[in-house]
Amino acid sequence: MPVDVRLPTVLRSQAGGQASVPVDGNTIGDVLRTLVGEHPGLKGQVLTNDGALHKFVNVYVNDDDVRYLQSLDTPVKDGDEISILPAVAGGMGATAEG
């Protein structure tokens, strides 16, 4: 059962320039592992070497961040839209000049 996965600009070059790709899977984990399998350039950018969700991306099922659902075990169903966006963070840091 394919679902559409929206990719952020920074990752599209690793997926043939596509903004959205159809991927099969019954859970977010299935979908992301298949996505990385089909587009090896995404390896290490979406999932860690241990297979966990990379901390520098956020993944959503429709409007919900999967970290607040069941993470990689979050089920997906026909018609769901999966979005991947970079986590946007930073700041002056812990030191006076940091």
Binding site: N58, A87, A89, G91
Partner: peptide, 9 residues
């Protein structure tokens, strides 16, 4: 800072 992920979406 961390941009609220849902607001980012």
């Amino acid at each position: 800072y961390t941009v609220d992920p849902r607001e980012h979406l």
